[in-house]
Simulated scan of single mutants.
Amino acid sequence: SSEPNLQNIPVRGELGKEVRQAFIAPPGSCLMAGDYSQIDLRALAHLSQDPSLLSAFHNDEDIHSATAAQLFGVDASQVTPDMRRLAKTVNFGVIYGMSDYGLEQATELSREEASRFIADYFDKYPGVKKYLESTKKQAREMGCVQTLLGRRRSILEISSSNRQVREAAERMAINMPVQGTSADIIKVAMINLHREMNQRQLKSKMVLQVHDELIFEVPEAELELMRQLVPEIMS
Rank of each mutant, 00 (worst) to 15 (best):
V19D: 06
E108W: 06
L229V: 09
A119Y: 10
P26D: 10
K205P: 12
R151M: 10
I63L: 14
P219N: 05
L41V: 14
I9S: 08
S65Y: 04
Q164Y: 07
L53H: 03
H64G: 03
I155Y: 08
S29L: 03
L31A: 14
D123E: 12
L47E: 11
H64A: 06
A56C: 05
L41C: 12
A183F: 11
L31Y: 03
K203R: 15
K137D: 14
V19L: 03
L229P: 11
R153V: 01
G16M: 04
S77I: 10
L229W: 07
V94R: 12
F122H: 14
M98Q: 14
Y36F: 13
G16T: 04
G97D: 06
V94M: 10
E232T: 13
S48G: 05
R200S: 15
D82I: 02
T147E: 00
F117C: 08
L54K: 13
G16F: 09
F117N: 15
E108Y: 06
L132K: 02
Q78E: 11
V90G: 11
T135F: 00
S204T: 11
L225N: 10
A66E: 12
R152V: 07
V165L: 09
L103M: 02
V188I: 15
Q7A: 13
A189Y: 08
A68E: 03
E167Q: 07
S52T: 08
Y131H: 14
P27L: 12
